[in-house]
Simulated scan of single mutants.
Amino acid sequence: MARWAPQETDTMAAIAAEVIAQVGTNRTVIAVDGQDGIDLERIAAALVGGFEQHGVHAMAAAAPTTEADVLRADLVTPFRTTGAGDGVLVVHGAGLLAPGTRTLWRWSLWAEQESGRLGRRADVKIAASAVLDVTDPEHPRREWNDAC
């Protein structure tokens, strides 16, 4: 018998609700990073859709680099200083949760799949605000990686 799994839209709306509750939506910048081979652009677009389900304006942007100064100058600062009120920018790209860039984001999401999970980088997983299992992209699951 097949098990029920939430649709991508439901999972992403739940994650967006978590972000809204934890850090708010006043010019909030979020990072989406993940294992090699994962479609981070798709995850970012789905997360934007999750925010829109809650009535929050959001947009996605591909990170042009992993250099903190460039990310700050080209994406973070312009988004935070142009415009007022609610808004979320979801930046996606490999390496965004590296030690040099982690402080740029108010909240972050690490995406991984079952294959290669044993080889995941513990430091990145710990740095992420949340972990998303995208082994089945149509039915991603929020992982609760607590220590208990």
Rank of each mutant, 00 (worst) to 15 (best):
P6N: 08
V29T: 11
R106K: 12
W105K: 02
H57R: 12
V19W: 00
P64H: 12
P140S: 04
A21Y: 01
W107G: 03
T65V: 09
D86R: 00
A62V: 11
G116W: 13
S115F: 04
R42C: 05
R106P: 00
D146F: 03
I43V: 15
D86Q: 08
V23M: 06
H139D: 05
A14I: 01
E41Y: 14
D133P: 12
L40P: 10
R141I: 08
A21N: 10
V48T: 09
T66S: 14
A73S: 15
P99I: 03
L96P: 00
T82D: 13
D136V: 06
A98K: 15
R117Q: 13
G37S: 12
T28Y: 01
V90E: 06
G93L: 07
L40D: 10
I43F: 00
V131Q: 09
A16D: 03
I38H: 07
D39E: 09
G34A: 10
R106I: 04
A111G: 05
G93E: 11
W105D: 01
S108Q: 07
A44T: 08
V29W: 01
V124Y: 06
A14Q: 11
P6A: 11
W4S: 10
P140Y: 10
L75R: 04
T77L: 15
G119D: 15
R117E: 13
G100A: 15
D74P: 11
A111Y: 02
T25E: 04
V88K: 02
G34W: 01
T11K: 07
R121M: 12
R120Q: 15
E114R: 15
P64C: 13
E52W: 04
R117W: 10
A61E: 15
V124R: 13
V70F: 00
E143P: 07
T101E: 04
A45Y: 03
D146H: 06
V32H: 02
D133H: 09
A147G: 09
R120V: 13
T65G: 14
H57K: 10
T28F: 00
A128T: 03
V56Y: 01
G37E: 08
A62Y: 12
Q113K: 11
G49C: 06
A84Y: 13
G87W: 02
A130G: 02
L104S: 09
S115L: 04
M59V: 08
V124T: 07
V90I: 14
M59R: 11
T9R: 12
F79R: 01
E138G: 02
A111F: 03
G83H: 08
L47A: 04
A16W: 01
D69K: 14
T77G: 01
W105E: 02
T66G: 11
D86K: 00
E8V: 09
I43W: 00
R72C: 02
L40S: 14
I15S: 02
T103Y: 09
T11L: 08
L47H: 02
Q35A: 14
E52P: 05
D33F: 13
Q113P: 00
R3T: 05
E114C: 11
R142L: 14
D133Q: 07
S115H: 05
A84W: 11
A84V: 14
R117D: 08
T101R: 10
W105H: 03
P140R: 09
